[in-house]
Design a protein around this nucleic acid. Structure first.
Lengths: 191, 191
DNA sequence: TCTCATTCCTAGCGCAGCTAGAATTGCAGA
DNA sequence: TCTGCAATTCTAGCTGCGCTAGGAATGAGA
């Protein structure tokens, strides 16, 4: 019984080690550098061990993405609850989202570009995803007016996300970043 | 002299054939199906011929993306100039953008996910990119108010783009699509 | 100490992007 | 018309990818 438990514990540790190592490697050298061979080498096991934990490489990326959403949720929560007025809370939340994407580019890629199959907006979406969206909802809700708060938040989130995505791929003028965020806040806080 | 001209003409035709074939194959089976081998087979030349036209596979994808921006620019122009009031023009332009992404998913991927290195927002960005942005600028400008029109448009474009990107990856509730677009228009047309 | 199930690794499959060097083609001058 | 040469194109193969079959090693229980 105890032996079984130890084995399961060690297995769980190795599971987490794979995720953490993939994340570190991706953040250090980009996702192209995260090959099953290099990953196996880093965790000091052979390649097939990876496949005893995950169905395929995409599943590893998805696991990293879920971690990312957890971190993002925390970052948004800290920013939002640390602000004074609702207006400041919204601005702080948006800045936190932007900062998160900037500080964790590879993680952001995993969350929004690579891990396409994460169940979102459905009943069985991971709790961390719901929590991250919940933070945005709390930030946008005060200005929803007559609109459905969730739909209103989806639009606000999209605007924010679009800014981040287009900016990081060099589609927007870098020097106007803060100005753009100010316009966004203005658009969503005025009736 | 004339022989040289014929050769250059044939080369240009083959260049275009590669781009068109890549685009068709991607739209039919997704970009994963666009391998240099399959592409070579379709154009009825050997693999190395591709590399006499493009530095690598990414360059082929980028060429497809540029075509996509040209098409998008046309679609936006048609939608915008076909509408009556500025408000209708904006709504029509946004719908056209959304429709374009929906009708050409692989092309949209090439433009915004795969071809990362296209020079944007700089002096040497291709004319087609500027034209597409110009259409958005014309659509958003009437509501820029005190804001710099270009920056205002960047925010509007981001909001639109975010909606499309998050929706197509299943991050937003499908049934609220039109409602979201209505909210977006509302946010950017009210002072 | 032996048996056997579990765990893990070695080796290799098919396919990817890409390229070196051979083979072919077709123009130009005799 | 024939020959030499330069440009073009192809054959063959390199390295590295995700993934897996099957054998070796490990360790708990009899």
């Amino acid at each position: 019984m105890s032996i079984q438990q130890r084995r399961e514990r060690e297995r769980a540790q190795r599971h987490q080690l794979i995720i953490t190592t993939a994340r570190e490697l991706a953040e250090a050298e980009g996702w192209d550098a995260v090959t099953t061979r290099r990953l196996a080498e880093r965790i000091e096991y052979s390649q097939p061990v990876l496949y005893s934990h995950f169905a395929n490489k995409d599943a590893i990326v998805a696991a990293v993405a879920v971690e990312g959403f957890a971190d993002l949720g925390e970052a948004l929560h800290a920013a939002r609850t640390g602000a004074g007025s609702p207006a400041e809370a919204l601005a702080a939340t948006l800045r936190a989202y932007e900062g998160f994407a900037e500080r964790n580019p590879a993680l952001f890629d995993a969350m929004f570009t690579l891990a396409i199959d994460l169940p979102f907006g459905t009943a069985d979406s991971p709790a961390v995803l719901k929590r991250a969206f919940g933070e945005l909802l709390a930030a946008f809700e005060p200005w929803a007016g007559e609109q459905d708060p969730e739909t209103f938040t989806e639009v606000g989130w999209s605007a924010l996300h679009g800014l981040v995505v287009l900016a990081r791929s060099g589609r927007l003028r870098p020097d106007q970043r803060d100005q753009r965020l100010a316009i966004l806040v203005d658009r969503f806080t005025t009736a």
